[in-house]
Every structure is written in structure tokens, then in C-alpha cells.
């Protein structure tokens, strides 16, 4: 811990010290140094609380891997469901009972493929929890250290500019912003 004592100047001595040339008193200088030391102390505590290494080595890679698995599982299940559906469209049989039996067998494969949702739901819940942790720690860090955002790097700025120019807004959170009926009216 950085203190006046460790700096080798007591408050009384600092106050009694003659002002150096240039007008700033030693007391004021010491006060500034103490303030800086306290800020560094708070900063170190905030950095420790951030547990950046754990985020970098554990939580963020986990979130990345889990989301990757979700993408793979959903793509795999979708392909499987579509394969089965295409198979159903192609079913032929001479009898209604035979046709029905074949369709039922395929439909149960669709049920099986839909089981992916349980697993992906659990994976996404883990990611949401990890992101919540990151948000809490960053929020605490930003508050304690009184962080001001720097300028974004060139690559990020380019990406953002492209998104704005080409209107790449992506899907809206609560469904389409413009209802299909309103769009249809525009084209009628």
C-alpha cells in the first residue's frame, strides 16, 4: 500500500516544507501522490476483482465452445428433420396401411431429432450465465475505475460503418419490426 509514511514524508513535515520553485507546495505534491496511490490501490483491487485470466482462459472459451456446439447441433438436427421430411414426401405404398406405417416410422425420427432442443437449451443457459458474470465484473470495474471508453479500432469502425451503410440490422428481438401486412401494402 502506498502511503505518506512509505513515501517518507509525514503530513506535518509536508505541510511545513517550503514551497518549491514554480509555486506548487510540497504538501500539495504529497497530497497528489497520495491520491494517485489510492487510485492505484483501487485500480489493483478492481483488476483483481475482474479476474481477467479466468474470463480469458475459462469463461469466454467455454461460451465460445458451447455456442459452437449449439450451432452444430441445430444444423445437424435441421438437416436430419429435412432429410426425413423429404423422405416422407417420396414415400409410396400400394396400401393405405403400408403408407401409414412408413410415414409413422419417419415421423418418430423427427421426434428423436427434436431432442436437440433440450441439450442446446442447457448449453445456452450456461452461456447466458457466463455473460452475466462478465457483465457484472466489467460493470464493477468500470464503476470503480471510472473508465472512459477509448476510440474503437479501425477494423471495428470499418465493420460498424459497413453495417450502417448496407443496413445490416439483423433480426429484431421481439419479432419483425415491420409486419408483413405493412410490407405487402407497400408493394400492392
Amino acid at each position: 500500500m502506498f502511503t505518506r509514511q512509505r513515501a517518507g514524508v509525514s503530513p506535518a513535515a509536508a505541510a511545513a516544507a517550503p514551497a518549491p520553485r514554480g509555486g506548487a507546495s510540497t504538501a500539495s505534491l504529497v497530497s497528489d501522490l497520495v491520491e494517485i496511490a489510492e487510485y492505484i490501490k483501487r485500480l489493483k483491487a478492481a483488476i483483481a476483482h475482474l479476474r481477467a485470466n479466468e474470463l480469458r482462459n475459462d469463461r469466454l472459451p467455454m461460451a465460445h465452445d458451447e455456442l459452437g456446439s449449439v450451432v452444430t447441433a441445430t444444423a445437424s438436427a435441421t438437416n436430419r428433420i429435412m432429410e426425413v421430411a423429404e423422405g416422407i414426401l417420396a414415400i409410396e405404398d400400394d396400401t393405405l396401411a403400408g403408407y401409414r406405417a412408413k410415414v409413422e416410422a419417419e415421423v418418430f425420427q423427427i421426434f428423436e431429432a427434436c431432442a436437440f432442443q433440450d441439450i442446446t437449451g442447457q448449453r445456452i443457459a450456461k452461456v447466458v450465465d457466463a455473460l452475466g458474470q462478465v457483465e457484472t465484473r466489467l460493470s464493477h470495474f468500470a464503476t470503480v475505475v471510472n473508465v472512459r471508453d477509448g476510440e474503437m479500432d479501425q477494423e471495428e469502425a470499418r465493420t460498424r460503418a459497413r453495417r450502417e451503410t448496407l443496413l445490416l440490422n439483423g433480426p429484431q428481438l421481439k419479432g419483425p419490426e415491420t409486419p408483413q401486412d405493412a410490407i405487402d401494402a407497400l408493394f400492392s
Partner: peptide
């Protein structure tokens, strides 16, 4: 497309699109 903002629809219309459908459909 999944782009459902009005500005997207207007921009596409101005650019000459013949019709516009929001996913899923």
C-alpha cells in the same frame, strides 16, 4: 430476409426490388 426494419424495406423498394418477405415464411 430477417431484416424487418422499415428502413430496409424502403431501401429495397427504392433500389427496385419487386417484393419483400420477412423470414420465417
Amino acid at each position: 430476409t430477417a431484416e424487418s426494419k422499415t428502413e430496409n424495406v424502403i431501401a429495397a423498394k427504392k433500389a427496385g426490388v419487386n417484393n419483400y418477405t420477412v423470414k420465417p415464411f
